[in-house]
Amino acid sequence: MKTKNNPEGKDKIRMIAIMTVSLCVIATGILFSLNSFMKGDTAGGTAGAFIAVIIFAFAVFVFIRGNRDLKGGFPLRDERSGKVIEKATSKAFYVTLYLLLLIGFLSDDIIKFRDVSQAMGIAVGGMAILFAVFWAYYNRKEF
């Protein structure tokens, strides 16, 4: 949608990109979950399904909000929202490093992962959830 604040329709392209990536992640989560259930791994399947549901909810929220803003003539991203995303991304990245260390530490004795891909899936899903949490936090915070 071409508007004064969005002369080249970049926001519409950004919206399509966000939705495409979200759908790919959700599809991967569902496949991962189904694969785990078929192999008898209930915990892994449940974790995959949980991550897919969380990302689906976040994608629906982003889609509704983005569509409303585009129709209202507002940009999808501005100075403040850009800073919120930057802060949420960097914090999610740092905390994910600790999450990876924790997964590595726990995978020896406490948690039995089926294979490396399952542990990686948990780490990536965890990063996505952390990003959503930090985004919600910084979106309300004063800075």
Binding site: K4, N5, D69, G72, G73, F74, P75, D78, E79, R80, S81, N139, E142, F143
Partner: peptide
């Protein structure tokens, strides 16, 4: 909304600016 459109930002940014919760 009018001010947000005129300046080219989201409405929430104007809300935060008015409340003094965002340093532009």
């Amino acid at each position: 909304e009018d001010l947000a459109r005129k300046v080219g930002v989201r409405r929430e940014t104007i809300v935060f600016l008015e409340q003094g919760k965002y340093n532009p």
